[in-house]
């Protein structure tokens, strides 16, 4: 069994993101970048499945600029076998990414595609679902537990009402929640070994995919600052304020 894992390079989750003065986007110069956190869970799960003997190969794929290769190297250092880098400069939308992934799936013929449930930069939460539609494969999104059962996959999903357990046939798309597992650290020797693993470089145009954005971004701005809270003396005052000032009761 082959597992393809799609990962994305994003602004590190600890960085305080700053909007460009002209509202054309956010500042990325000299900003620490890293792997989208739930993508780390996707890689970890794929590697675990391989370690348990159920999979034979884990392929990491990323779509992005030259430096996105760093993200692939990290995936290789924690156990992916090889990488595919589809080089794209500038903004790329989920539909274009899923079309690119569709081409990669056609070529690599994996039994499972893993990815994070969503990317923390644009929070789209669309690529997995769109890829599922394009391939006409079943999807299991927000996975927090995965079991193999008689050639099928049982997946526990994190949903608003609690946990939902579903069963999907293979091949399938699984998007991973942060609760799925605890990603491992890359050890120094494995980072060294990862430098020798292969990364195939492709261009979106080689794959015949049109990546022209379909959404026009008008403006990016910071959310309004929250006003400081106040302390109320007692419940009566709270109720009075909720009624007359906040007008919520």
């Amino acid at each position: 069994m082959k597992i393809l894992v799609a990962i994305k390079r994003v602004i590190d989750y600890n960085v305080q993101v700053r909007v460009k003065e002209d509202g054309s986007g956010v500042v990325t110069d000299n900003v620490k970048m890293s792997t989208n956190p739930p993508d780390d869970n996707a890689i970890e799960e794929a590697v675990k499945i391989k370690e348990s003997g159920k999979a034979t190969e884990v392929i990491a794929v990323t779509v992005g600029e030259e430096k996105a290769q760093e993200t692939l190297r990290k995936a290789l250092a924690v156990g992916a076998d090889r990488g595919i880098h589809v080089k794209v400069d500038g903004i790329i939308e989920p539909l274009a990414v899923s079309k690119i992934l569709q081409k990669i799936v056609d070529k690599e013929k994996p039994d499972l595609v893993f990815m994070g449930k969503q990317a923390i930069d644009d929070d789209c939460n669309q690529t997995g679902q769109m890829l599922s539609a394009l391939l006409n494969w079943p999807q299991a999104t927000f996975a927090s537990k995965i079991y193999f059962k008689d050639g099928k996959l049982e997946v526990v999903r994190e949903i608003d009402e609690g946990l939902e357990t579903i069963e999907v046939n293979l091949p399938a798309i699984v998007t991973c929640d942060l609760r799925l597992n605890e990603p491992r650290y890359a050890s120094l020797p494995n980072i060294m070994k990862a430098k020798k693993k292969s990364i195939e470089q492709l261009n979106a145009s080689d794959l015949g995919v049109d990546i022209t954005p379909r959404i026009q971004q008008i403006k990016v701005e910071e959310p309004p600052k929250r006003k400081a809270g106040i302390k109320v003396a007692n419940v009566a005052e709270l109720v009075q304020k909720l009624k007359n000032e906040a007008k919520v009761i």
Binding site: E182, P183, R184, Y185, S187, L188, P189
Partner: peptide, 11 residues
Amino acid sequence: KKNSYEPGIDL
């Protein structure tokens, strides 16, 4: 040691 434990190495 946590599940993610990764021993250090000597350089």
